[in-house]
Design a protein around this nucleic acid. Structure first.
Lengths: 270, 270
DNA sequence: GTGCTTTATTGGTATTACCTAATGTGCTGC
DNA sequence: GCAGCACATTAGGTAATACCAATAAAGCAC
């Protein structure tokens, strides 16, 4: 059985068996899984060995575990890429430039497609997202959610689920990253979304594409601007507080971490 | 601390703390983590609680665990999306059409960029991939690896790591899916790769883009053809073997699964 | 100094026990 | 007969412990 991967710890094997069962149609979206205790017996492993495998599936958004109830295979893959994408950004140190470049490469094209295939349902969703955006004064969380909704509506209108998943995830991770910035400006965002929506409603692909490109470029410009300001502020702080030159992020996203943990020979140190 | 997600089981919290540590620069790519026993003490949880969290990170390609040695934070995110993407395909039932559509939307553009930015290193990689492709007679695994190498070379030449990661993963998952088909034809693949490589070397973006699009369309056509054949064959088998109408995949990818497991009231049944 | 052996360390697995939350059942009271 | 509450069952979540297997580092012999 040739395969590109090859590990051998039980966790991985169990996950492979799960995958196999899914592709064989034994497990279908929405089905309730047997209890951990039963599964452990079936797979001939201890429950404490099975649990990590199930936890991996849950954290990747493949299943959902409910205490006192059981585990269910998710209906769709809407959240499968969320966490991995965040780690991708962290590990690769993905820059806003890269993100923007990718989005510019594809979202205008998607907007154009949306303008070609759009249905009345899609239009309703688009309008709703704009309405929500307008009504979410100062509420950053709601504002960002509305922004996401707008772009997701376009993805759906474009008619390719896979592409939608991908870019929804990217968009979301991006917004999560800049959650702490003051960036997202209500009027500003609306002023871009409205014409795009209109172009799609009028089934004008060329215009939709062009406007979307402008929107993304503008967002990138704003992001870059904010970043410069933060950098500057950090620099000032660096000199005023006279602290040692420990690397610091611009915003106060630090939490949950007690500062001086870990002090070992060749392991991590701070 | 506003955040789009919100769970509260320890596993998730631990992963969040890990993420935080990474974004704070406490954990940097390549560092060796403290042992599970130490980490468990630091996080004030039992080792058996910490393990699933670490396992999630390993399965997502964030860390690498070595028995008798320790855990290391990976250098890059090259494998972070691999497993999630496979589950995405499984859960969403992603079709070859969707995949092809997405690739057609972006890979020609990437080939064009590659033609603009290509360096001598990139060209060397491209040529090597073609050489490997030619030398991998009948060895399907090597053949597929060469194919992957070719496209990855283009991604790298295009200069956007994020895009490269994304499409490498998609490409890989796609190949993994069709691993069992006889599809991949040596001469055929080479006949497409060579001119694309040439166009990139000559710094001809328009040509590179056009050829890449042709390559993808051709691959999609072949895939579709194969699929029809398999469907037909399955249909024949269905009638000759007189078995009950259990869902079956065309190829013999089934393994690891004993057929009649699980028979419970409202849980999965087969 | 080189090469082997030993040993401490690390992740992997199994066993057990107990907690909390959800479900379902049956009893009670109206 | 039906509504509503109490309880027992069952699910996943966590902890504690013991032991296995693989690795790497330390020590020893040559």
């Amino acid at each position: 059985m040739p395969c590109l991967d090859a590990k051998e710890d039980l966790t991985h094997l169990l996950i492979l068996r799960f995958q196999q069962m899914m592709s064989d149609g034994v497990l279908r979206p929405g089905t309730k899984l047997p209890s951990e205790r039963e599964l452990a017996v079936h797979f001939k492993v201890d429950r404490s060995t099975l649990r990590p495998a199930l936890k991996v599936l849950e954290m990747m958004g493949v299943i959902q575990q409910k205490i006192g109830d059981g585990s269910y295979l998710n209906q769709d893959a809407s959240s499968v890429l969320a966490m991995p994408m965040e780690f991708l950004f962290l590990l690769d140190g993905t820059s806003i430039e890269e993100l923007t470049e990718l989005r510019l490469l594809i979202e205008p094209a998607l907007a154009a497609r949306a303008a070609e295939r759009v249905t009345s349902d899609d239009i309703a969703l688009l309008r709703q997202s704009i309405k929500e955006l307008e009504s979410s004064k100062q509420d950053r969380v709601k504002l960002i959610a509305s922004d996401l909704l707008f772009h997701r509506a376009i993805f759906e209108a474009s008619g390719n689920r896979l592409t939608g998943r991908l870019f929804h995830t990217i968009h979301r991770a991006m917004l999560n990253m800049m959650m702490t910035s003051q960036l997202v400006d209500l009027e500003h965002t609306v002023s871009f979304h409205k014409p795009i929506c209109a172009a799609i409603e009028q089934c004008n692909p060329a215009l939709a594409s062009k406007l979307m490109a402008a929107h993304l470029k503008d967002a990138a410009r704003l992001l870059d601007q904010i970043r410069r300001q933060e950098k500057e502020r950090d620099l000032r702080q660096h000199f005023t507080t006279a602290k040692s030159g420990l690397v610091k992020k611009g915003n106060s996203a630090r939490r949950l971490m007690s500062p001086v943990l870990f002090a070992k020979k060749n392991s991590i140190r701070l």
